[in-house]
Write a protein that binds this DNA or RNA. Structure first.
Length: 878
RNA sequence: GGGCGGUUAGCUCAGUUGGUUAGAGUGUCACGUUGACAUCGUGAAGGUCACAAGUUCGAGUCUUGUACCGCCCACCA
């Protein structure tokens, strides 16, 4: 056996196994006639940058379940890949250009795309490498990108299908416009943030107002600059205050344009003045009113946020400067009645955080209602399940109020919209929608075609991820075998962006759900609770942790902290590092002490478990009890619980007790076998959580050739769970713990041997058989049994509960001990009273389960016994 | 405005259908190392389970309300 170092050297080990797994194609999944499939598609990380802690968490979770299922014999496939992330990636490359004082227009579309692809290559590769370092057991041969040729074809095909079904349309609507990115955004991409703004009250003069009548109609607005595009003022039809002005004409200040006063139910009389300016081209509500009342749509802004020529004297000024200028101008004309503080939500671009502008523009949309209905059904029927369950409601609520999806983006990085316009056909009849670029116009045969300049929303490709990655529509076999996928792991932020849309796409294009279980995990935050992000500078780089503590440590520590949101600081990773090291060293101990020829041990066949010592029976039982709980926890996606079980079992059962007990008994072949078999099985079940250290140990155990990653998950052998032995061992543990306590209290050094006498009435045979444990672990030298303990002699050491006495009178302070005993007696008496009260309650006897009542009764008896005993002791000591 | 989650030891969190004396990790303190591991071992201290009321024989757990923290959704200009 090779010399093993006393520290787990993760650096060497990790790179070795990464390479080994990949070179041997361990994680490749393929259609298999006799096996069930278990598949996961990775939430493809954006190629905008490198992986952060959130990715580490997300991918560790997936890796745990896929490794678990692989060991259970499923044909597994974990699909890796990356997302082109449209606007986000274009933004980072634009930022790079900006450092050279260039814009995308300076370099042109073609060159820009070249640079984008170069960026994608660099960061895409980095991301895949980082995933490998984390230990992710993806099927690397399948690595996909949302803009692969075949994938792009699927995207275009989907567009064509939806278009032909009438679910895609083009139209002029108010969309969220980012003046910096100069593109449309979907509703989900406009992040609303609370903003302490102002509400401006502006007086609109009434035309032909009577000198003694109302001269002005005052409206309230948060965006005065849009008033330049007003084409009406609306009041509620039931608002008595404005009955008289309804239908009259106002003079729009600054523009001196005539606009009408209209009535609309939308207007809430209690807000502001009850009169609202209507700007149909710059506000979604006003847009709707504009349509209802056939108003004019006046767009007063350029796409870059500057006022346009329709803004008169304000033309060319940026929207926010224009706001100030307009307010000044109004003030000058005494038309600004007042300004109030007003908190409201303002939309921001989710990528560059610029304030978005509701903007009238012609865009492509997907009609969502017909797609949403079946997607609501499958969740209601439980075919797609959320974990934790509460997210179901969030999903359904969004789905049931879904709005059409704006899918066109005025950027260059992405899937070009598969629409061509014939330049020789009349407008509105010149649209050609096609998967492949058409050579000529099907109507007029003209070759004078131009493709739509826009690209598709990045999510328009991501929503096909669960089947397009498996080769849809070409590769039917893979799709049939691996689709629907089994589970999806993601953060709550993208339930709407991605999860919901994948359900819709799966049902629409494949006719089946994309996944059965959706596991929503928490957000990774720093120790102050602030979301980790590169821009805030509070991020902990997973690679740094891997370098310092190891990938296993990173994985283990993240998962054990992953109940809800995670508050992470660097020290938290010590748990994982220490545990990996503990596993390593315990394995060393076992390996150094065994001389087994045959290492493939089956505990049911190769060991006569009935002849085993108490501790061995106990550790076997403990293992299988733990295994059962772990299986349950993983199936319920309770990974932190599973890790806790593993940690507790190994450290506090196997190492602290079992190995300590058997340390000097390694010459017993049965003990060797048990110690080895339990370690070997433990290594198997720990593998999904800590793949590297377990692979390395597995190699040293030399049970079998081949990677641990493809070994079988242990069967639950219920027949090896020996409850009696478990209980007895538990008593021994308690005994020893009690003695340790006493020693600590009495300032006796732990290693100092003491004598122990059992009262014979409480002596049990099994205990005499296990004196060796007491001697060795408890440092108890002589165990003697006496008919009747000399109470006086034993009094000072009498420790109820554990049913034994330590005659150590010379070593302890009798007065102090007396006090202790009296306090104890009082406490017991108190407990006794409350217990008697409870047991005297008829309702309790009637309603509580029998087992509870029986236990309570038993407890009362023991309590009374103890009190008596203590009383005698007190008497005896005087 | 609507919805969701949280509040348990100094810190980070478990606590599964209500059932003995509420647990762990970490930190603190004490003691300990003759060869698995100091990334270790043994032990101690530390909790009115946010607050209030209710249901119950019994509440950290269920109900209602309050406070604070966090998140998501929403077109009140």
């Amino acid at each position: 056996m090779p010399e093993l170092s006393t520290r787990f050297d993760f650096k060497k080990v990790e790179s070795f196994w990464c390479k080994y797994w990949e070179d041997n194609n361990i994680f490749h999944g393929q259609v298999h006639p006799d096996k069930k499939s278990y598949s996961i598609v990775i939430p493809p990380p954006n190629v905008t940058g490198i992986l952060h802690m959130g990715h580490a968490l997300n991918n560790t979770l997936q890796d745990i379940i896929i490794r678990y299922k692989r060991m259970q014999g499923f044909e597994t496939c974990w699909m890796p890949g990356t997302d082109h992330a449209g606007i986000a990636t274009q933004n980072v490359v634009e930022k790079k250009l900006a450092k050279e004082d260039k814009t995308r227009y300076d370099v042109g579309r073609e060159e820009m795309l070249k640079q984008l692809w170069a960026w994608k290559k660099e960061y895409g590769d980095t991301i895949i490498n980082q995933l490998k370092k984390l230990g992710a057991s993806c099927d690397w041969s399948r690595t996909r990108f949302t803009m692969d040729d075949q994938y792009s074809e699927a995207v275009r095909l989907v567009f064509v299908k939806l278009y032909e079904k009438g679910l895609i349309y083009k139209g002029k609507y108010i969309i969220n416009w980012c003046p910096r990115c100069q593109t449309a955004l979907s509703d989900e991409e406009a992040e609303h943030k609370d903003h302490q703004g102002s509400l401006y009250y502006i007086k609109y003069p009434i035309k032909d107002a009577q000198t003694n009548g109302l001269q002005f109609l005052t409206v309230a607005t948060t965006r005065p600059e849009t008033m330049l595009g007003d084409t009406a003022v609306a009041v509620n039809p039931n608002d008595e205050r404005y009955k008289n002005v309804l239908g009259r004409t106002l003079i729009l200040p600054l523009m001196e344009r005539e606009i009408k006063v209209i009535s609309d139910d939308f207007v809430k009389p209690e807000f502001g003045t009850g009169a609202v300016k209507v700007t149909p081209a710059h506000d979604p509500n006003d847009f709707a009113m504009g349509q209802r009342h056939q108003l004019e749509f006046l767009n007063v802004m350029h796409p870059d946020g500057k006022m346009n020529e329709l803004a008169g004297e304000f033309s060319g000024i940026d929207r926010f400067e224009a706001r100030e200028a307009i307010l000044d101008a109004l003030e000058e004309r005494k038309l600004l009645e007042k300004v109030e503080q007003h908190a409201h939500a303002v939309g921001h671009c989710y990528r560059c955080h610029t304030v978005v502008e509701p903007y009238l523009s012609k865009q492509w949309f997907v009609k969502m209602r017909p797609l949403a209905e079946p997607a609501v059904q499958v969740v209601k029927e439980g075919k797609v399940k959320f974990h934790p369950e509460r997210w179901t409601k969030v999903y359904l609520n969004w789905m049931e109020n879904i709005r059409d999806w704006c899918i066109s983006r005025q950027i260059w990085w992405g899937h070009r919209i598969p629409v061509w316009y014939c330049q020789d056909c009349p407008q509105d009849q010149n649209i050609i929608v096609s998967v492949k670029a058409p050579a000529k116009c099907p109507q007029c045969q003209s070759t004078n075609l131009i493709q739509d300049e826009d690209v598709l929303d990045t999510w328009f490709s991501s929503w096909l991820w669960p089947f397009a990655t498996f080769g849809w529509p070409e590769n039917k076999a893979d799709v049939n075998f691996f689709y629907p996928t089994s589970s999806l792991f993601t953060a709550s932020e993208i339930i709407f962006f991605w999860v919901a849309r994948m359900v819709m796409a799966g049902l629409e294009f494949i006719g089946d759900i994309p996944f059965e279980d959706v596991y929503i995990h928490g957000t990774v935050r720093d120790s102050k609770g602030i979301k980790m992000s590169k821009s805030l500078g509070n991020a902990i780089d997973p690679l740094e942790i891997i370098g310092e503590y190891g990938a296993d440590a990173l994985r283990f520590s993240l998962i054990i902290n992953s109940g809800q949101d995670l508050y992470i600081s660097k020290e938290k990773f010590e748990v994982g590092r220490n545990f990996a090291n503990k596993i390593w060293n315990a394995s060393r101990l076992v390996l150094m002490n065994i001389s087994l020829e045959e290492r493939n041990i089956d505990l049911t066949k190769d060991v006569d478990t009935t002849q085993l010592d108490l501790a061995s029976k106990w550790i076997i039982s403990k293992f299988y009890i733990t295994l059962k709980k772990i299986d349950l926890a993983i199936e319920k996606y309770r990974f932190s619980e599973a890790e806790n079980l593993i940690y507790e079992f190994f450290w506090h059962n196997y190492c602290d007790w079992y190995l300590e007990i058997i340390k000097n008994k390694f010459d017993d072949p049965n003990i060797q076998k048990v110690a080895f078999a339990i370690l070997e099985n433990f290594i198997r079940i720990t593998h999904p959580f800590m793949p590297f250290v377990t692979e390395e140990i597995w190699k040293n155990l030399s049970v079998k050739e081949g990677a641990l990653a493809i070994q079988a998950w242990p069967d639950l052998k219920k027949e090896l769970i020996d409850e009696k032995s478990s209980e007895q061992m538990q008593t021994v543990i308690e005994l020893i713990t009690q003695i340790r306590n006493i020693k600590a209290q009495w300032n006796i050094k732990p290693q100092q041997k003491i004598d122990l006498a059992f009262s014979s009435t409480k002596k049990e045979n099994w205990l005499t058989d296990n004196e060796d444990i007491l001697k060795k672990i408890g440092n108890i030298d002589i165990v003697s049994y006496q008919e009747q303990l000399d109470i006086k002699e034993a009094a000072t050491g009498l420790v109820e509960q554990v049913k034994f006495a330590i005659p150590l009178g010379s070593l302890i302070d009798i007065e102090q001990e007396k006090k202790r005993i009296i306090i104890q007696k009082d406490q017991h008496t108190k407990n006794c009273v409350s217990l008697e009260k409870r047991l005297g309650n008829q309702k309790f006897l009637d309603k509580a389960p029998e087992a509870v009542v029986a236990k309570e009764k038993e407890r009362l008896v023991t309590l009374k016994d103890k009190i008596k005993e203590l009383e005698t002791v007190i008497q005896n000591i005087g």
